[in-house]
Design a protein around this nucleic acid. Structure first.
Lengths: 173, 173, 173, 173
DNA sequence: GATGAATGAGAATTCATTCAT
DNA sequence: AATGAATGAATTCTCATTCAT
């Protein structure tokens, strides 16, 4: 990926995360990226192609996450790690996650791809832990995860993330 | 509000919730509502005015919710009721809540107004219950709430809501 | 003409004179006149009909002017009177004349009707005064008239009308 | 300025001069100019931006006029030259001046900028010529100028411009 | 006579996308 | 690869006009 390509992706990600995919004209992306509008289409075919490229890059990050979690020894550790994912998102990755969460509400395409691997890991961990209704238990934990993500990504400046994590951990001693 | 005005609001709410505010042209709303496009602007000034009207109507619903919860006797009951709100949203109100949640991600204007009263109730209930860090505790519960809302509104057809609630309650017996 | 009809005409005249016929929506007229938009069409058929009604009323005023001038004894007095017409327009008639002058530039329909009688009087007066090229002389005087009208109607607050008239008269002792 | 940009400006000037700014849709300009409607907005932002561009180009023409007049040796020559400006407007510049004069009547924004330099030259010439009330004298001459412009631009085909100028000069021999 | 809801045509503007250079 | 002019379809919004009450 050339420097300009990267610049387009960065600008698009920032703007999409901020205003939503549909609210961002390609002209705004080109301007922010300091390139001509035509270049976006030469590199990414069309606006959706640009979105796909962004999501593709994100998925690779997620794959890394998944393997880290799989590397944990106990099922308990794996479950906890998943639930606490939002607390460990690097600030530089906030735009990507904001975009993922905003797309959830309009488009189920990306969502499944993102959460499916986590759900699979969760269920097998919970089965290993002898939970009777592992699926419902998994859904509950994924709900927590979504809730924490929502809070952290949207109220990052208002809510004390670390205190929140502490409070959470006390419950799950 | 005339019949046609109501029809516009209904169609807009449905479409906004489904595709997102920015992805719905006013022509689509008019068509769905069976009115001329101009009428939207005559009644609501502009597209944002229409959105505002929808949100205004929703806020009244929320106010009702708030007073119901305040009517509960014990702080424990109030806390539980808030956390479980998403499980009790009527299906006919799903579009409104989907819209609220989707707007959160591009526009924090409405959000504060929505969650502020709940947070206030939570904090005073938690103080009454002698929690040391009531604020963090409240944030945690509101995070749960957002997570449950996300799951129920988005995966309503895939996830068994009642089972999920049962699983949740077992934890907070 | 009923009170509301008069109110419509007044508002329309004021707004047309100020912003130009094409720049004034009928909705603005209705609002300013304090009547419903439909009423304009009931009384005047359409927007052009309203303009015609205004111009018709103005023409009657002009006819009065014409007879006053015809009543003057000497041809010199008549010529002078015509040239000085703009200096004697009542302030309340400014909007009407501004409208006439603004329409000149888009629409030759009204202009002829307004200036034709004056030109006829001028020519016969000038013939009587033994001018060789009465027509050119008349055009020159009508040009003066237009110039004074332009100055007085547009720069009424900036230019001292009376001083200007004095200066003019010194030339034509 | 590209060829198409120039074509837009030409068409707009012609149509605005003819029918008035508010009466000309951008679609008509695009059609006349043989370009897509969108191009107008890409180059000039909006309809008013197009008008501004036209006026800006015209002001440069005026500046040329002003310097020519300033180059004249005697104050008498300068005064006469200003008064006679309308007689020397090139036919190709008629549309621009028609536009200026038609805008005067709804919008005084441009007017001052146009006539101010002329008034300044006039006053200093008249002072040099020992006129007691130079300002009023200047206003009178500017009124003449406006009158001649009105006649020539609007009745150019009906009135004999040269004869009129002759008649005028006889007065000011 | 009077209102105000409603319409439909059209006007200004936006925007994804193409294309010559 | 990169630009920027250009397009055409859509989109938001306006406005004269009609019509039921």
């Amino acid at each position: 990926m050339t420097e300009k390509q990267q610049s387009i992706v960065n600008s698009a990600l920032k703007l999409f995360a901020d205003k939503g995919f549909d609210a961002v004209p390609t002209s705004a992306i080109a301007k922010d990226a300091g390139v001509s509008e035509g270049l976006i289409f030469r590199h990414f075919q069309n606006k959706v192609g640009l979105l796909n490229a962004i999501m593709q890059m994100g998925k690779e990050k997620i794959a890394d996450n998944v393997s880290e979690i799989l590397a944990l020894n106990t099922p308990e550790a794996r479950v906890t790690a998943i639930m606490e994912i939002p607390f460990y998102i690097a600030e530089e990755d906030y735009p990507f996650w904001k975009l993922v969460y905003s797309l959830k509400w309009q488009n189920d395409y990306y969502d499944d791809e993102m959460s499916k691997p986590m759900k699979d890991i969760l269920i097998s961990a919970l089965v290993e832990m002898k939970y009777i209704d592992a699926e419902s238990e998994a859904d509950l934990i994924l709900s927590y995860l979504d809730g924490f993500a929502t809070t952290i990504l949207l109220k990052g400046e208002v809510v004390d993330k670390n205190k929140l994590l502490q409070t959470l951990r006390k419950k799950y001693k």
